[in-house]
Write a protein that binds this DNA or RNA. Structure first.
Lengths: 217, 217
DNA sequence: AAAGATTGACTGAATGTTCAGTCTAGAAAC
DNA sequence: GTTTCTAGACTGAACATTCAGTCAATCTTT
């Protein structure tokens, strides 16, 4: 019978399989402690094959991070696109970074941010990924604000300033959530963020019962 | 038995020297990449001696982190104590976490936070240090708010909520500053934070020229 | 259509390096 | 003269990367 990797084995599938495996291991062990052997085992192959696909360990890990960020952002924006009001989209955006998702995608785990930041401090390659990602994120926020202002939903604030502040706030809360801070639960983080957003942009918001439809994990 | 009590403290000096060396190396290479040999070299001794003082590498690094946090917090609060108004103290607190200090203390480098967080995700020992530190920090903020409210300087807000939000905001901005984000300079971070604080607590604040008195040295 | 040639995917067994921690013994302090 | 402090040499394990091929397909040539 077919052993582990029965998949046709086309190169792209293999790569992705390895990237996912790498993300899983990274979430567990942290970026610098991730061993090629772990990734190989998780992907059901040998260390040699991992190196065969990604010339070096660093390349594997950097690519994995980029892969994760792109995925997260892509599913995020596609979800936003389905929401009618700017306020609703903003709420979804806040939820995305505060409330745990049910989909088990390891790529969306908060601890990845912590590793991403720590690695960015030393590795220019990773730093580039992060910078681009942050710019994209702030850009998303500020254009959302702009849309809301044009639609008359939001009051006048500087969209760029608001984007910097909100993204920083969400990052800071994400740290607490990622580390399981006893005081800052996801729900509380979400509510505090939304209170801030509503106050700053001048629209009404009351804690709805959105908690339930995203439990899990 | 070892008593460092009757020794003038050469042992303690050695320890501290090593802790400082460890912090320097950690800032450069990151927590998990810090080698005992590096620390020894930086401290002008041998790897064996480092192990002699700190049984293991982990112990050395954990202790170094605690040392840094305690120092940072101590010098911070002592500086706060010299300021008369609650608003002024709050401003100093914000400055502490946004504006670069001239004192060359490597312990106060922002990248340490990034490492601290990343390590906390995996190592309970480090997580404990961080949790305690964060609680202390939020406690500092919320009691500062309370003082200001009692003095009539601040409007009514929930001090605990405010502390969570402000500390998260400052953390998030610290990430950008630590990583040298092109969009979020220390000055801008400070100004945005203070605008948030003033608006939230209801007092007037205009960007003074505080930049200058924390330059050289 | 069979025999060979070519290539991409893959592997197990080295190889070589890097390090945390140990050992031994000498120097200094008391 | 015993205890504390210090360093140089060493050990053993962990680990990234290399190497020398195997295997199974597609493509060529006849």
């Amino acid at each position: 019978m077919r052993q582990q990797a029965d998949i046709p084995g086309t190169a792209d599938q293999r790569r992705e399989q390895m990237l996912r495996a790498a993300l899983e291991v990274m979430a567990e062990r942290g970026y610098p402690e991730t061993r090629i052997a772990d990734v190989a085992e998780r992907a059901g192959t040998s260390p040699a094959l991992v190196i065969y696909y990604f010339k070096t360990k660093d390349q594997l890990l950097t690519e994995a991070i980029r892969f994760a960020e792109d995925n997260w952002y892509a599913t995020g924006t596609s979800r936003l696109a389905r929401i009618a009001t700017a306020a609703g989209r903003l709420e979804e955006l806040v939820a995305m970074s505060c409330l745990p998702e049910a989909d088990a995608d390891p790529a969306s785990s908060w601890v990845h941010w912590l590793d991403l930041w720590a690695q960015s401090a030393r590795h220019p390659e990773v730093a580039g990924v992060r910078q681009k990602f942050d710019e994209r994120w702030r850009e998303t926020i500020s254009s959302l604000v702009l849309e809301g202002q044009e639609a008359g939903e939001f009051g006048p604030v500087d969209p760029a300033d608001f984007a910097v502040v909100l993204s920083a706030l969400l990052d800071g809360l994400a740290v607490q959530i990622a580390l399981g801070d006893t005081v800052v639960s996801p729900g509380r983080a979400f509510e505090l963020s939304m209170r801030f957003v509503a106050k700053e942009l001048g629209f009404d918001w009351t804690p709805a019962d959105r908690k339930e439809h995203r439990a899990g994990r």
